[in-house]
Amino acid sequence: MFQRSDPPDITITWDGRELPARSGESLATALLAAGVLSFRETPVSGAARGPLCLMGACFDCLVEVEGQQNVQACMTPVHPGLRAAPQHGVRDLPEVEAA
């Protein structure tokens, strides 16, 4: 798997548990460094899937970030306390906040 060259300096939450991360990196690399390879289940077959390209092209690293679903983990910078979770199949749209 992957090992960090530099120590983590912040903490994020993945699926309810705390994971170390390093400022400036993407959510995808934070998860990979923590040994998380499976990010979601696909809406087509339900198969487990993780990132492929890490450059925003493949849309395989979709996760839920702060309640927003189908977000590309590789394009999401981490910040202390970031809450993320696996994407389970099709996206549920959030309620619209009252204007």
């Binding site: 992957f2 060259s5 390093r22 993407s26 690399t29 990979l32 460094a33 390879l37 492929l52 450059m55």
Partner: peptide, 27 residues
């Protein structure tokens, strides 16, 4: 190749350049 744990070499290089992630284990 759709299994989690299969990625591209380019992806691993990005992980190395942007987050200092280096391969370790059965890579």
């Amino acid at each position: 190749w759709t299994l989690p744990g299969v990625m591209t070499v380019g992806a691993a290089q990005i992980a190395l350049k942007t987050a200092g992630l280096k391969p370790q284990g059965d890579v």
